[in-house]
């Protein structure tokens, strides 16, 4: 019974959906305020979502209808799943096991793959270009993201998110060693969320909406929600790995601190996408492999040395 409660209500589908839509509002509001605009009212993402649910759904004639319709659900399910492994208000998550860091990373990869497949099967040319671009982008940012997060785990000598937070809880200031990794992962997260400067797969002025061009109605709502959920999950994942403090004050304050950390990361992401232009796909690949990957390796090396010298 409690398992069903956690899956469906807290911190499962219902909670994460509301949180995700609220995160979208925050992102848009901050973005607007940074641009000296007013921004949308708080219920705008909810209204958009409800409106999309009621819209007619069009499946392209040549599209593979099963794949086309299955992919949004697939993407949504996997991103919600990933949230179940987040340490929200205590150091343990709901279902902790050794290796959940890796599982979360892969669960976060699934939506991108789903976008690719869904876009590919919708047979629109814009979608296909967008799909190929998102896959190309995936290969570029995934490596620095993985190395960045794993190097934090290497320092803690564990593959479990709960163990990781426990370790950093014991060694109070160790998270400061991971700042390079944090920066790398923030940038990689921007790429994962397909936000400026990495919104190449859905570059509006080039290929309309990329993989999502042909989607409409419920399934498009689902895709939008998936991206929002990814925003929350990604931010909380980074918060859990790189800002692992503040769990010792009990569940309620711990939860509040956790929320603050997530908000902080969302704020950083919003600022980052305000001050840059969209890159080209070749520039993006270059940037990731030339700067992000070496930086991530430096972080890994640093952590290995620290581990050898200090922790032992």
């Amino acid at each position: 019974m409690s398992a069903i409660f956690s899956i469906l209500i807290f911190p499962g589908i219902l909670f994460i959906s509301v949180a995700a839509l609220f995160a979208e509002f925050l992102d848009r509001r901050i973005y607007a305020r940074l641009q000296n605009r007013f921004g949308p009212p708080w219920f705008q993402p909810f209204a958009d979502f409800v409106k999309l649910l009621g819209k007619e759904e069009v499946v392209p004639k040549d599209a593979n209808a099963v794949m086309f319709k299955a992919m949004p659900i697939f993407a949504f399910a996997s991103s919600v799943c990933a949230f179940l492994y987040m340490p929200l208000y205590r150091q343990n998550s709901l279902f902790p096991f050794n290796g959940d860091v890796i599982v979360v990373l892969y669960l976060l990869t699934v939506p991108t793959l789903a976008f690719f497949i869904g876009g590919w099967y919708s047979t629109s040319l814009y979608s296909r270009i967008g799909s190929v671009r998102s896959l190309m982008q995936l290969f570029s940012y995934e490596v620095p993201l993985f190395i960045g997060i794993l190097s934090a785990a290497v320092l803690a000598d564990t593959w479990s998110l709960s163990q990781l937070t426990v370790f950093y809880g014991e060694h109070n200031w160790f998270w400061l060693f991971n700042l390079i990794g944090f920066a790398v992962c923030l940038i990689a997260l921007l790429a994962k969320l397909e936000k400026v400067p990495f919104d190449i797969p859905e570059a509006e002025t080039e290929i309309v909406a990329g993989s999502f061009t042909e989607y409409s109605g419920r399934h498009f709502a689902m895709l939008r929600l998936t991206l929002d959920v990814e925003l929350v999950v990604g931010s909380s994942f980074l918060a859990a790995v790189f800002l692992p403090f503040g769990y010792s004050f009990g569940p309620i304050i711990g939860f509040a601190i956790f929320l603050l950390k997530v908000l902080f990361i969302i704020f950083l992401l919003s600022v980052a996408r305000t001050v840059v232009a969209r890159l080209r796909i070749d520039q993006m690949v270059n940037f990731c492999w030339r700067f992000l990957v070496p930086l991530a390796f430096i972080q890994l090396l640093l952590n290995l040395i620290i581990k050898g010298v200090i922790v032992r």
Binding site: I30, R33, L34, Q35, N36, R37, V271, T274
Partner: peptide, 15 residues
């Protein structure tokens, strides 16, 4: 650009 952008958080929107 960054400075300009962060400054506008404190400003009232012109809308």
């Amino acid at each position: 650009m960054l400075r300009q952008v962060l400054k506008s958080i404190l400003k009232k929107p012109v809308t």
